[in-house]
């Protein structure tokens, strides 16, 4: 009995430390790798906790290994867009300009019932009112209504502008050609907007179809 108690204490400390090192996202929205790590870690911890005939190390070693792998994949995801999209996928437009993208629906294996449910959860009862619906990599659905159906804000009342979603076109120095083409812009326009600044020196640049852009330059690491 006492052995089980001590083992539980040890495993608890190790798991809490591992989850803490993985970051706060681990507790809330989970990316696929994080979800796998969380499920496996809890499962691995339970086995030596319940069976005192199994060495504690047979639970600790896999947990430490998972922790190291999770930290490495998180760092690689931060550095490489390709690696990030490989592990976590890309956000997918399920509704674009009010039309359901059936190919995207099939690719994401989302049924119409599930889409309707997600829309209802966002307080939307009519698909026609949705201009954009994006399935995020966390599995959540982000929705943007047509301006005439969206709750009016003070800024919209003054400007009366059409809804524009700014998309990132440069992320940590990397030009996102896919987003550029979605917006209808090209590299020449992008370099022109940067007015001589190299894309390598840009941390984040977002743009809209109208050409509205926001540029956040990279900070000096020193």
């Amino acid at each position: 009995m006492f052995v089980s108690f001590v083992r539980t204490l040890i495993l608890y400390v190790i798991i809490v430390a591992a989850i803490r090192l993985m970051g706060k996202r681990q507790v809330g929205e989970l990316e696929p790798t994080e979800l796998v790590a969380a499920i496996l870690i809890s499962d691995l911890a339970a086995v030596p906790m319940q069976d005192i005939g199994i060495p504690l190390l047979s639970g600790v070693i896999p947990i430490l290994t998972l922790l190291a792998l999770e930290l490495i994949s998180a760092e690689l995801s931060l550095r490489s867009i390709r690696f990030r999209s490989l592990l976590c996928g890309n956000p997918v437009f399920l509704i674009k300009d009010g039309k359901i993208d059936q190919k995207a629906m099939a690719a994401t294996k989302l049924s119409l019932d599930e889409l309707s449910q997600c829309l209802r959860e966002n307080g939307i009862s009519d698909i026609k009112t949705v201009k954009f619906a994006i399935l995020e990599t966390s599995g959540r659905l982000s929705t943007f209504l047509y301006p005439e159906y969206a709750p009016l804000t003070a800024a919209q009342e003054k400007a009366n502008t059409d809804l524009e979603i700014p998309l990132p076109v440069i992320s940590d120095g990397t030009i996102l050609s896919r987003n550029l083409s979605i917006l209808g812009w090209d590299r020449r326009w992008l370099l022109g907007e940067l007015s001589g600044t190299s894309p390598d020196n840009v941390y984040l640049m977002t743009a809209t179809r109208r050409g509205t852009r926001t540029i956040i330059p990279k900070e000096d690491p020193k």
């Binding site: 922790l67 190291a68 490495i72 760092e75």
Partner: peptide, 21 residues
């Protein structure tokens, strides 16, 4: 720098397992 800790952890686990074997 952030890669060093997990890589060292992996090396440590590997070495520890090898020694145990």
């Amino acid at each position: 720098k952030r890669m060093i800790m997990p890589l060292l952890l992996l090396v440590f686990v590997t070495l520890f397992c090898s020694v145990c074997i």
